[in-house]
Design a protein around this nucleic acid. Structure first.
Length: 258
DNA sequence: CCACATGTTCATTT
DNA sequence: AAAATGAACATGTG
């Protein structure tokens, strides 16, 4: 579920499997997922190594020994799979990095909404994509200030990557639920206490999601995510409402969220 | 067959 | 550059 927490988990997986090994081959099975780059350009990373990685919003930047970054966006169904080259092959592998130790890092993405690109520099990439501050890095003062001049519905605003980078449909619902704020509340109708609730719960929810490995079944009942299915009920006994907000399915508790 | 899905981007309208 | 809306992208699942 590639919102910020998943990408952080993918980063940990990447770091613990794929750093400091010579890349002896790169297979691009689906060039259509490349953005502003070519198969040849990706193949030029052969005989380099991954030396570190960092995450910004929903993007993962893999730094290579030739001082460049391969940038991954996981779309809706993307993930990494690291396995021995003789095992684990799947038909959804879009790009494969084959290491000298005979293991392979596959960028898998059944739906092909994921994107892979190349960048020399993270700040330039962030600027070019007009990404807002990372949701886990932004401080409270800036967070409050960002709402100045905003009048739209709160949920689409939280999900707007130009406004704030990292929050998607599920965690926008969770953050609003924890904060007691209705997803259709207007951004200019938020009170001082609401900003505080939103900020604190945003950080809490994202950190918990990482801790729980982004698996809904790991979330205790006080989280919306463990009841977020048709017919699901809030622990207070209310049936969760399902509406469309900004074109996305939205769950909320009509009693708790005003 | 149909509806729906964790995301982004583009066009159109207000 | 705001914001809302709808469509498009590709493919699996129920």
């Amino acid at each position: 579920m590639p919102e910020l927490p998943s990408v952080e988990i993918f980063k940990n997986y990447f770091d613990s499997t794929s750093l400091d090994q010579n890349i002896i081959d790169i297979v691009v099975s689906n060039p259509e997922i490349l953005v502003d780059t070519t198969t040849q350009n990706i193949k030029n990373f052969k005989s380099s190594r991954f030396i570190s990685s960092s995450r910004y919003g929903k993007y993962l930047f893999a730094k290579t020994s030739n001082e460049s970054f391969i940038v991954f966006h996981f779309g809706m169904t993307g993930f990494f799979k690291y396995h021995h080259q003789s095992k684990g092959h799947t038909s959804h592998s879009r790009i494969s990095f084959i290491f000298e130790n005979e293991n392979v890092l596959d960028f898998e993405d059944p739906r092909k909404f994921g994107k892979v690109s190349v960048s020399k520099n993270i700040p330039d990439f962030v600027e070019k994509k007009h990404l807002g501050p990372d949701a886990l890095e932004v401080d409270y003062e800036l967070f409050k200030k960002m709402f100045e001049g905003r009048k739209g519905n709160i949920k689409p605003l939280l999900m707007n990557q130009h406004f704030l980078a990292g929050i998607g449909n599920l965690y926008a619902d969770e953050i609003l639920y924890q904060s007691g704020i209705h997803p259709l509340r207007k951004a200019d109708h938020l009170h001082k206490a609401d900003f505080y609730q939103l900020y604190e719960n945003m950080i809490m929810v994202l950190k918990k999601a990482i801790e729980f490995q982004d698996r809904p079944r790991n979330f205790p009942p006080e989280f919306l995510l463990s009841h977020r299915y048709p017919g699901g009920e809030c622990p207070n006994g209310e049936k969760l409402e399902i509406i469309k907000v900004g074109g996305r399915t939205t769950y909320y508790c009509p009693e708790k969220q005003i």
